[in-house]
Design a protein around this nucleic acid. Sequence first.
DNA 1: CAACCGACGGCAAGGGGTTGCCATCGTGTT
DNA 2: AACACGATGGCAACCCCTTGCCGTCGGTTG
Lengths: 327, 327
Amino acid sequence: MPGPTIYDVATAAGVATSTVSRAFSTPGRVSAATREKVLAVAAELGYQPNPHARALLSGKHHTVAMVVSDITNPHYFELIRGAEMRARVSEYTLLLVNAEESPRVEWEQIQRLAPAVDGFLLAASRLPDENLRQIAVQRPIVLMSRELPGLASVVLDHVEGCRQIVAHLSSLGHRDLVYLAGPRNSWMAGTRWAALKAAADQVGLTARRIGPFTPKVSQGGAAADGAVNAGTTAVVAHNDLLAIGVMQRLAQRGLRVPEDISVVGFDDIFAADVCTPGLTTLGGAHADLGRAAVELLLTAGTRGPDDQPRVLLPTELVLRGSTGPVA
Amino acid sequence: MPGPTIYDVATAAGVATSTVSRAFSTPGRVSAATREKVLAVAAELGYQPNPHARALLSGKHHTVAMVVSDITNPHYFELIRGAEMRARVSEYTLLLVNAEESPRVEWEQIQRLAPAVDGFLLAASRLPDENLRQIAVQRPIVLMSRELPGLASVVLDHVEGCRQIVAHLSSLGHRDLVYLAGPRNSWMAGTRWAALKAAADQVGLTARRIGPFTPKVSQGGAAADGAVNAGTTAVVAHNDLLAIGVMQRLAQRGLRVPEDISVVGFDDIFAADVCTPGLTTLGGAHADLGRAAVELLLTAGTRGPDDQPRVLLPTELVLRGSTGPVA
DNA sequence: CAACCGACGGCAAGGGGTTGCCATCGTGTT
DNA sequence: AACACGATGGCAACCCCTTGCCGTCGGTTG
């Protein structure tokens, strides 16, 4: 059942195993004729090098693990897709791991995989800073949608993005907004709030925060009621799932979007485009984010601990029907 | 950088490497006292067995690869999630691979990974039957949303599901339906059409098929126009993405759903619930499908080639606003 | 024609675990 | 007290491939 080994090829071709090995990995090291022959025999036997034996010796596994905080969030699809594609062009394999929003699970999975992969992509990690640093000494890591000094990261430029959200709302006459916060251990939640608050202050708009909420559609009800209770004309939800849940609840309560209340999300997931009204949301090239993260990870060996890059990708505020002028 | 090895542990504990190995893998083979000590030392050193070295000898990798035909299709999210969860409880790692709707890419990826995984989950594989059989002799495989005699498979019961769709449409007064077919090399596309046709015949409804279409939103325009041109009151799209694209195009043409035309999809993706009108679609417990597939794969060793299971999971016809009575 | 040299193959030592087999030790048996 | 046997630990081979080092051989140079 297991395929032929390098020994089989060597025997069949009448050479030593080292020659077979070199025929594959160090083409210049054997004569063209020998190489031809070895490759021919190998092809005939259907030989394929055993990646484990190779990894054992080289320490390189040609594999990167991507850990996502919650695989059910469609937002990650694009990240995963971008990462997968970038990994593939370098003939790297992408391991997908779900942390289920649990720092403990995340940590265990990472420890389990650490000896078997070349590095980690941590998407929206819920781990505390010190844990991230611990991992970083074992393996190269790249953070996605999170930053930590000294570690490589890839994030969308939420400062500028939030400024655009605030400018958009302000231009529509809103004097006040409510941010429906994400989980407490989400770096993004903190960042978005800080950026919104700063931008709001700058243009003289009042910003309040309620939450935290688990960013799922099902939590939209509670979030919507909180916003209504706060009495605002504009809500900015931690992500699109929550925003969609909010809109569902508002509709249920007979409140109109955007006439009575405007709703903004983050991520620009596919559903944001098909719900009614369409959801105004801060998107960005998420596939590029995945791509960039893998890129960084694959080139991690060339950098010291002091020049860990911090890639900032532009956001795009996508205007749809969920935001409108204040009545 | 690489962690301590079994040798380090052996030295530190004052025993032989074989004892350390057995302390972990064959607990009964060493005395309790020795075992305690070894484990303590190992924990202190932060020892973790190198999975490659282990795989090299045992041939077991504790890894399964899941190949999806197109990772951008949200439908797969649930499958992936279910598979990931089931794999995790058995401490298996899930490798995610995207075939990009290309049989060639699919084949290459599988060949590349074959020596490194314990088996394959092939979701909606686009490979021809004989290729699937070839793979099956190398490694255990489980097909998802596809069947082939002699190979293990997990699919939703589309025969019954399609009967329900037809009954639903028929009860609303439709006398005729058009199926917007999926890709030619999609087994599902053939199955769905056959099941729809059979069910339609049975209740005296006319069924026609147009296509094939690539099942993406962007193809909905062409599909919608084809359906309009065919002059029907009900369309059944190969999947929800296509159905959503169809609805968008119909709206653009000023046709009302469901008053002028009813639309049905397959998969019950998240977006089907948030679009307007909500999409009537044939769903099912997709996460269970992923779970069942991994289950089958992990127990594959216990079965002969003649009793490859064929798991049939129930569908659920989810009625939403996109279907209604004929005007 | 001798001395060199580069190109090419082979030998053998790992790399980190696992496991069959043997040696040892302690205890129970008669 | 002699013997047998089960429990336990160690030795060393093996899994498959890579790579440093050495030997060989043909050809170049002076």
